[in-house]
């Protein structure tokens, strides 16, 4: 992905040298032309056309903001309810993501989502240990959120 981005910038600079005008607007024109060229030549790259992962990252950011707002609503309800009848639990979640940066990203996402945060990652990086604030109604729903997060992260790195 970074390779394609760099290639696109270089193509934009080639356009600037060809057009003999060194301004922001000619850079943008060259960049868009380069984008078209890279789209035509996409089958020669081993990874997907790099605009796709960028969109997925945008999607991840939106999910993140939504989950952060929901998380705060959930904490607010627990803190301000008259009786503390929550059931905390610590459970292990098997991981599908492999690379270190993916695990870090996933654990930050989990920490900022409703009622969960990460306590530890196992030594072989196959499991993470999650503390939930209210087990019965969160456990299954959270598992679903996690699969959607994990799937999106896997889409980015593919």
């Amino acid at each position: 992905m970074a390779q394609q981005l760099l290639l696109n910038v270089i193509l934009a600079f080639v356009w600037m040298f060809l057009a003999d005008s060194f301004s922001g607007s000619s850079f943008v024109i060259g960049y868009l032309l380069g984008l078209g060229i890279l789209f035509v030549l996409r089958r020669y790259f081993s990874t997907t056309f790099y605009v796709v992962p960028l969109f997925v990252i945008g999607k991840l950011a939106l999910i993140f903001i939504k989950e952060l707002l929901l998380a705060n609503w959930a904490v607010l309800k627990i803190v301000l309810s008259p009786s503390l009848n929550m059931k905390p639990c610590i459970f292990a979640l098997p991981l599908e993501v492999k690379k270190d940066w993916e695990i870090t990203l996933l654990s930050s996402l989990i920490t900022l989502t409703p009622g969960t945060f990460v306590i530890d990652v196992s030594d072989d990086k196959k499991e993470i240990y999650i503390h939930t604030i209210d087990a019965p109604d969160v456990d299954e729903a959270v598992r679903q959120i996690k699969t959607s997060f994990e799937k999106t992260i896997l889409e980015v790195s593919r």
Binding site: L68, L69, A71, N72, V75, L76, I78, V79, L80, L84, M86, P88, I90, T111, L112, G115, F117, I119, H131, I133
Partner: peptide, 29 residues
């Protein structure tokens, strides 16, 4: 308001881990 609620959460919740929930989410936002 959210910062206030997380302060209330620190006072009311029973242990380190549940308090950490209140701190990490509400104060961030």
């Amino acid at each position: 308001l959210l910062t206030l609620i997380s302060a209330i959460g620190v006072l009311r919740l029973p242990d380190v881990y549940t308090r950490s929930h209140a701190i990490s989410k509400s104060t961030t936002l």
